[in-house]
Amino acid sequence: MSDTQLTARAATPLLEIIRNIKPDQLDAPTPCAEYDVRRLLNHLLFWGPSLEGAARKETVPPPAESDSAVDLTGGDWAADVETQLNRIVDAWSKPRAWAGTTHMGGPTELPAALVGGMVLSELVVHGWDLAKATGQHLVVADDVAGEVHKEVTKTATLGREMGAYGPEVPVPASSSTVDRVLGLTGRDPAWTP
């Protein structure tokens, strides 16, 4: 399975979760302490163009200094998130997206494969966040989960230094691959609202 196919397969469960979020769930807490459901959807919309641009080797700065400075969830937020995720999948479905270097909204040049791995991780981890917050269950294919685990293992320390991940949550080695990913990102797989 190539990275280009994994992106679409990582996005599919997230899209299903988003389609099933009810408007009265937008204020529900998520496993990301700083985000409720609305703010997490806003986060996906905020960073989506930058992640899409990274695949095309275009620097697309986010619309503000932080995702808390804008609210992009007005109107038909579900359709907007779905459209943005489909654009990300389309952009990362091209083999050239994974080659060479790129930028993720800022001036720092990064290996494109590293950014692509971060995109896979975002799709799966935030899919889980939204699923847990809204009483749904995220189903991730084994090969997708394995690839995300490999990527998060490589970037966990950097993610914690950047504040993207919390302190590692110990998870038994016998746990599912997704649960081990969650622990690496600072999430408790047993989290409940």
Rank of each mutant, 00 (worst) to 15 (best):
M1N: 10
S2C: 09
L6G: 00
T7Q: 09
T7E: 05
A8L: 08
R9L: 11
R9M: 10
T12I: 07
P13L: 04
I17P: 04
I17L: 06
I17H: 04
I18W: 06
I21N: 01
D24M: 10
L26C: 03
L26S: 05
L26H: 08
L26K: 07
D27N: 15
D27W: 13
A28R: 12
T30G: 05
Y35D: 15
D36V: 01
R38K: 14
R38Y: 10
L40F: 06
L40C: 02
L44N: 10
L44E: 10
F46I: 00
P49S: 05
S50D: 01
S50L: 06
L51Y: 13
E52D: 10
E52R: 13
A54Q: 06
A55M: 07
K57S: 10
E58H: 13
E58Y: 09
V60S: 03
V60T: 11
P61C: 06
P61Q: 07
A64W: 06
A64C: 03
E65R: 14
S66Q: 12
S66M: 08
A69N: 14
D71G: 02
D76P: 04
A78R: 13
V81D: 06
T83Y: 13
T83E: 15
Q84M: 15
L85I: 09
V89W: 03
V89I: 06
V89E: 03
A91H: 04
W92G: 02
K94F: 12
P95A: 03
P95M: 00
P95Q: 00
A97F: 01
G100F: 10
T101S: 11
T102E: 06
H103F: 13
H103L: 11
M104R: 13
M104S: 11
G105M: 08
T108P: 08
E109V: 13
P111W: 08
L114N: 13
L114Y: 15
L114R: 13
V115G: 02
V115I: 11
G116V: 05
G117E: 05
G117K: 00
G117L: 07
M118P: 05
M118Q: 14
M118L: 15
S121V: 05
L123S: 03
V124S: 00
V125S: 05
H126L: 01
L130K: 00
A131I: 00
K132R: 12
A133W: 01
Q136M: 07
Q136H: 08
A141M: 09
D143Q: 07
V144S: 03
A145K: 02
G146E: 10
H149G: 09
K150A: 15
K150M: 11
V152S: 05
K154A: 15
K154N: 12
A156C: 04
T157Q: 15
R160K: 09
G163Q: 10
P167R: 14
V169T: 11
V171Y: 05
V171N: 01
S174F: 07
S174N: 12
S175I: 04
S175P: 08
S176C: 02
S176Q: 03
T177N: 06
V178D: 03
V178S: 05
D179S: 11
R180C: 06
V181C: 09
V181S: 03
L182M: 01
G183E: 00
G183Y: 02
L184S: 04
T185K: 07
T185W: 00
R187V: 07
P189F: 04
A190P: 12
A190T: 12
P193L: 07
P193E: 01
